[in-house]
Design a protein around this nucleic acid. Structure first.
Lengths: 104, 104
DNA sequence: TTGATTCATCAGCTTCGGTCGATGTAGCGT
DNA sequence: ACGCTACATCGACCGAAGCTGATGAATCAA
């Protein structure tokens, strides 16, 4: 049984970088636009945009243009899939405790 | 509320690399020694050892010396913590949908 | 004891990816 | 129209991290 084909890749896209993880953590509290994230993290605007692009392409955030601002929010459905995937892996790991492949 | 202080770091240690993710996936099925992992992944022995070290130091696997072999297994408790952390983040993200920080 | 096997560690190379400044575009206020 | 702000994208730089071959320790078989 496969937990999720690209579970690892998805996770890396989410947490693969400390700053990206911080962005996710902030977006988990409220929707924010890029300028908010720049203020809160202290990173440059181009850096924030870069990470938002990664998160967007990975399907973890959505961008909503609001005039000259762009609001970002997390996609709970994507996070739910991730949660299930890791939960499955955890359950599988639990069962694996009893299995040992013999050494030739 | 903080999901987990170093949730991101922990996740990166687990899935931060495709090969490492593959190792985790294999260990989720059964306990294996290094040579098994070398065979199954096709990676060099030193490379496998390197990743096992990362996983070990992160607390996700334990090593059990068995004669000249060393069996590795995942630590379900560590994975459970991770699952809870991501589940919390997911729940938090769900609530955040209704909150929007105003742009100055 | 000798040799083969398993595994960990090390130093060096190389690649990947994050960060940055610069540039361009679009929307808003005056 | 003009300027200002918010944002995306680009190219370049650089540091972190993975990969590798070599080396050494430990175990087992002959």
């Amino acid at each position: 049984m496969e937990a999720q084909p690209d579970l690892a890749e998805a996770v890396v896209k989410l947490f693969g970088d400390p700053l990206r993880a911080e962005i996710v953590r902030l977006l988990a509290r409220e929707q924010m636009c890029t300028c908010h994230l720049v203020d809160d993290t202290g990173a440059r605007q181009s850096t924030i945009s870069h990470h938002l692009r990664v998160l967007r392409e990975a399907g973890f955030v959505t961008a909503e243009p609001r005039g000259r601002y762009t609001y970002y929010r997390l996609r709970p459905d994507a996070l739910s899939l991730l949660t299930v995937g890791i939960a499955n892996l955890t359950a599988q790991a639990h069962h694996a405790q009893a299995i040992r492949r013999p050494c030739a």
